[in-house]
């Protein structure tokens, strides 16, 4: 029988989730203590709760939500060339699906015939 509460031995060290949880609980506790000593002027239903958009009044509540298509715009734009290739490959055409499979099959046949043996 092993000690299941003990350390999780990895190839180069060890890891103990329970200690991690314990430490993070302490950190949360400290954070809570700091937070609870803060100002308590926040009031619901006043203009404090409205989103702040550089001084402009938001058009509507829905308008303040950043939609999924706009997130990571910068990342995708920076890798434009890479994504262009990927989009070109993903044609959605069933002929291409079979074509890729057969192509990889042919390549691997060649590789195994050349270097497959022990």
């Amino acid at each position: 029988m092993m000690n299941f509460l003990g350390n999780f031995i990895t190839p180069a060290g060890m890891w103990n989730p329970l200690i991690w949880v314990f430490v993070s609980l302490i950190i949360f506790l400290i954070a809570y203590l700091i937070w609870s000593r803060g100002e308590s002027r926040y009031k619901k239903g006043t203009e404090q709760t409205l989103p702040f958009l550089s001084g402009y009044a938001p058009e509507s509540a829905e308008g303040t939500h950043v939609r999924a298509g706009n997130i990571y715009w910068g990342f995708v734009t920076a890798l434009k060339g890479y994504y262009k290739v990927l989009r070109k490959i993903h044609t959605g055409n069933v002929n291409d699906y079979v074509g890729w499979y057969v192509g990889i099959l042919a390549i691997m046949l060649l590789i195994y015939l050349l270097w497959g043996g022990a």
């Binding site: 499979y101 990889i104 099959l105 691997m108 046949l109 590789i111 195994y112 015939l113 497959g116 043996g117």
Partner: peptide, 11 residues
């Protein structure tokens, strides 16, 4: 066998 191996592993 190498042909069979390619067919099986790729599939």
């Amino acid at each position: 066998d190498k042909i069979a191996m390619a067919l099986i592993t790729v599939t």
